[in-house]
């Protein structure tokens, strides 16, 4: 079975490194980036099934980054993670972003994997 590939994008380095390690222990290939620039450069040489994007990252909003990533790699799926108080709070302001899923921090790893499987099966 093909190993799922995910790109984690969040400016909290300790968050993405631990999350990447945990995903890797569960058989998922995970790379990480801490800025929009870094994420876009990762896409130059790699392909991912899913990108997990923080809504607010330095240099560019997660919403804008999603649009740029989609232009580079059309088949990619997106899950947003947000530090907003609630998913409803985030949805109210960003409905036009159209990611496949939203998750509110702190994220449960099993819930995240379930969402990743769901979006890639779509």
């Amino acid at each position: 079975m093909k190993k799922m590939r995910v790109l984690l994008v969040d400016d909290e380095e300790e968050l993405v490194t631990a999350m990447a390690e945990r995903l890797s222990l569960r058989g998922i290939h995970a790379d990480w980036a801490t800025s929009a620039e870094d994420a876009l450069s990762k896409l130059e040489n790699n392909r991912y099934d899913v990108a997990l994007l923080d809504v607010k990252i330095p240099g560019m909003s997660g919403i804008k980054l999603k649009k740029e990533m989609e232009e580079k790699y059309a088949g990619m799926k997106f899950i947003f993670i947000t530090g907003h108080g609630s998913e409803a709070d985030f949805r109210a302001g960003s409905i036009e972003a159209g990611p496949d899923y939203y998750l509110v921090k702190p994220v449960d790893i099993e819930e995240l994997i379930k969402k990743m499987n769901e979006v890639t099966e779509k």
Binding site: E12, L15, A18, R22, G83, H84, P106, V107, I109
Partner: peptide, 17 residues
């Protein structure tokens, strides 16, 4: 509240790991 959520997220991943 956003900053606190970020701290909780890092703690959550570290504890999980």
């Amino acid at each position: 509240s956003h900053e606190i959520k970020n701290v909780l997220a890092v703690l959550n991943e570290n504890a999980g790991l």
